[in-house]
Design a protein around this nucleic acid. Structure first.
Length: 589
RNA sequence: GCGCCCGUAGCUCAGAUGGAUAGAGCACUAGCCUACGAAGUUAGGGGUCGGAGGUUCGAAUCCUUCCGGGCGCACCA
């Protein structure tokens, strides 16, 4: 409908420009939804936008546009208002078609072709497999998953990916931590480093490790603890301490056995993360292993390639990528003095790999603390000869969890933190997912756990789901009252009987769904969907409950089926909207 | 110190690409069920859009500057 108005106004403007003897292009203008009924259904700012170009006052030009507007059966009237807005009042019949569309398309209703099948890879969550996910990961998971759904609905070809950091120091620390717990089980005395993983989940993995490998990893505890530099509380450096311990562990155990422990920890932790994400309605098409980059030689070859392109420089024994040449604030180390590659080296290889797999664009969803990465990743792309605009980073701000009005600490200190699983078990997947995305991702989020559990209209998830369940109930009553089945064709044929303002307003809201999807996709903002679905639910409740009550199951078959068609369409759009957010639409509550 | 994000009603927040009288929810006040779910709904009060300049027909939105909050600035991952 907006496109129709845009075309009509364009035609009028073209005629006016021709009459003016000007051969310039039509200036940009907007067709918007109006905020109030007195401004009609759609408003257009073309007269204001073109006023300067044609040297006319906006209101005069608006009158000229109206005079040149081709007639159209869908337009009831056009008014000029305010500084020069063109307010379009549509014929009610022209708005009804959308109801038939919804009922015909079902779950497909709302899909658009904004993305034109552009191939995107969206990377999200990517939590290190060194422990359970915490509530911060939850927001990234909810956001990334919802955004992927939305982009897909908007016609992008979306691939969802999880980057598994299964390579490097953190996993070495993880393996060593597990081994120390295993040694505890075998009554071998060691000292647990301050920088190791202290969570109970590590201790809990020790028994299964012993069950699978028996005493294969038992060793001399004194030898393991020998020649270690002091830990932090002993006046030393915790990083140096733990690194020395890892070196001891590797030499005592040998590479094969160390790797066995490492793989054991990795497999279990990753399986836990996967299982939790499934419960959270979050899916990934690909779990991409960082280690595979090193083992396939991709890591080494990207370093070689960059060196060949003159993007690298050796300084103080280390190999640096000259990121400053591409707008980063400083150069970045890729290979350390000790010969080990950095995490950033893997990032570059991974970035290259993504584009080699044929994606038009790579979207990274990262926590807000990673904002320093944006310039770095884009510089890496430039260095590889890839247009940095094809690399997009969306940052998700932090979430704070509140329980009984007090903030729940998320610090990892002492292994005490609220896991995503804890949160999900307490409030449920639906509430958690909705709450995570109902605010802009650029905004800090206060997550109220009590509110998320409430069964009343204060709780937006409940409110929306309730609207869906209520409609389902109406259809149950239909059968119970012996009024016969819902006759879609009859309903659609009689939509003209829906003339109440609240019904028309609900129809208009349904008609906006596609546009809302596009808007959410363009601005990478799932919260737009959350707000929409809440507004739709409010309209539904309004139709349903505001006095005088609207009798849906009325005696007149035509009107009854028309109203049922509206109900069915509303239910479908609520369900489709919630599905984009990974939230269920239950039939009863 | 430098960089990124944020500041809108008592509280939590929407207001993409500048548009008409800045909107929701909560909380507060007053109404609405013999009813297809009241687990709901209707109405009301409530604002110097952090401050000050600027850009223009028009600024919460863009620019400058200041104030206030969050985060980041590793041969860590």
């Amino acid at each position: 409908m907006k496109q129709l108005i845009r075309d009509l106004v364009s035609q009028a403007l073209t005629a006016l420009l021709a009459a003016h003897g000007s051969d310039v292009a039509i200036p940009e203008f907007l067709v918007e939804n109006t905020k109030s009924r007195e401004h009609g259904d759609f408003a257009c700012n073309a007269a204001m936008a073109a006023a300067k170009l044609l040297g006319q006052k906006p209101r005069d030009l608006a009158a000229a546009i109206v005079a040149n507007l081709p007639a159209n059966a869908n337009v009831a009237k056009v008014e000029i208002a305010g500084p020069g807005f063109l307010n379009f009042f549509m014929r009610a019949e022209s708005m009804y078609a959308v109801i038939g569309d919804v009922l015909r398309l079902g779950a497909e209703f709302g899909r658009t072709n904004l993305g034109a099948n552009e191939k995107l890879t969206v990377e999200y969550v990517s939590a290190n497999p060194t422990g359970p996910m915490h509530v911060g990961h939850g927001r990234g998971a909810a956001y990334g998953s919802s955004l992927s759904n939305i982009l897909s609905a908007a016609g992008f070809d979306v691939q969802r990916e999880y980057y598994v950091n299964d390579y490097g120091r953190q996993m070495d620390i993880m393996a060593t931590s597990l081994w120390l717990r295993y040694l505890d089980l075998h009554q071998i005395t060691t000292r647990f480093p301050e920088n190791a993983y202290k969570g109970a989940y590590v201790t809990e993995m020790a028994a299964p490790l012993a069950a699978e490998f028996g005493a294969a990893f038992v060793c001399d505890g004194e030898a393991l603890m020998a020649n270690l530099p002091p830990d932090e509380s002993q006046g030393g450096d915790k990083d140096k301490h733990v690194d020395a311990l890892i070196a001891n562990a590797k030499s005592l155990l040998g590479a094969v056995k160390f790797r066995q422990i490492y793989d054991f920890a990795l497999a279990r932790l990753q399986a836990e993360i996967k299982a939790e994400l499934v419960k959270f309605n979050v899916v990934h098409d690909e779990w991409f292993s960082e280690r595979s980059l090193a083992e396939s030689g991709a890591l080494q070859s990207v370093v070689a390639a960059l060196t060949e392109r003159g993007q690298m420089e050796t300084r103080e024994g280390a190999l640096w990528f000259k990121a400053t040449e591409y707008g980063d604030e400083k150069d970045r180390v890729v290979v350390r003095e000790n010969g080990q590659s950095t995490y950033f080296a893997s990032d570059i290889a991974y970035l290259k790999n993504k584009f080699e797999r044929g994606y038009d664009r790579a979207i990274y969803i990262l926590g807000a603390d990673h904002h320093g990465y944006i310039a770095r990743l884009k510089a890496a792309a430039s260095g590889l000869g890839i247009d940095p605009n094809r690399v997009e980073v969306d940052l998700v701000q932090f979430a704070r969890l509140f329980k009984d009005g007090v903030e729940v600490s998320m610090g990892k200190r002492g292994g005490q933190f609220v896991t995503l699983a804890d949160l999900r078990e307490e409030v449920g997947t639906d509430a958690a997912r909705f709450f995570y995305v109902m605010r802009s991702h650029e905004q800090h989020l206060d997550f109220d756990m009590e509110l998320a559990k409430k069964q009343s209209s204060d709780n937006p998830v409940f409110y929306v789901q309730y609207a869906h369940a209520r409609i389902c109930r109406v259809f149950e009553r239909l059968t119970e009252r012996g009024l016969g089945a819902f006759d879609v064709a009859l309903g659609v044929a009689n939509l003209g009987l829906l003339s109440e303002a609240r019904e028309l307003s609900l129809i208009a809201a349904i008609g906006r769904f596609s546009e809302v999807i596009n808007s959410a996709a363009n601005s990478r903002s799932p919260h737009i969907i959350a707000n929409y679905v809440r507004d739709l639910a409010a309209q539904l409740h309004g139709v349903y409950d505001s006095p005088p009550r609207l009798e849906i199951l009325c005696a007149d078959a035509g009107l009854r089926n028309a109203r049922l068609a509206l109900m069915a369409a509303t239910r479908q759009v609520l369900k489709n909207g919630l599905a984009l957010l990974g939230v269920a639409a239950p039939d009863s509550m």
